[in-house]
């Protein structure tokens, strides 16, 4: 990893885990957006309900920084 790269912990939930993983540390270009990270997992951003960086909601256009935790959820509900 060089200084133009960041390491992000990607967490997937519900059916996004199928044939993927629960949690994985991945390396990305430092300029990457949440949308691009979603796409790199083979997930259609249209299917994404909620994304959070370090337990705070974020947009698909946001850019994570080194060491961030990114959680990606499909559209879910309950109660």
């Amino acid at each position: 990893m060089n200084r133009n790269e960041i390491s992000v912990t990607v967490k997937l939930f519900a059916f996004f885990r199928e044939n993927r993983f629960k949690q994985q540390e991945q390396t990305f270009p430092a300029t990457i957006t949440v949308r691009e990270i979603v796409q790199r997992q083979g997930i259609d951003p249209e299917e994404v309900g909620v994304t959070m960086i370090n337990s705070r909601h974020c947009t698909l256009d946001q850019t994570p920084v080194q060491g961030d935790q990114l959680a990606i959820f499909p559209v879910i509900g309950g109660g």
Binding site: A14, E47, G78
Partner: peptide, 21 residues
Amino acid sequence: PISQALGTYGTNVLVNIINES
């Protein structure tokens, strides 16, 4: 889509997202 997730995981699908938040 929420109805579909509820049919698969039940309301308990919320544990992880409420924990994450």
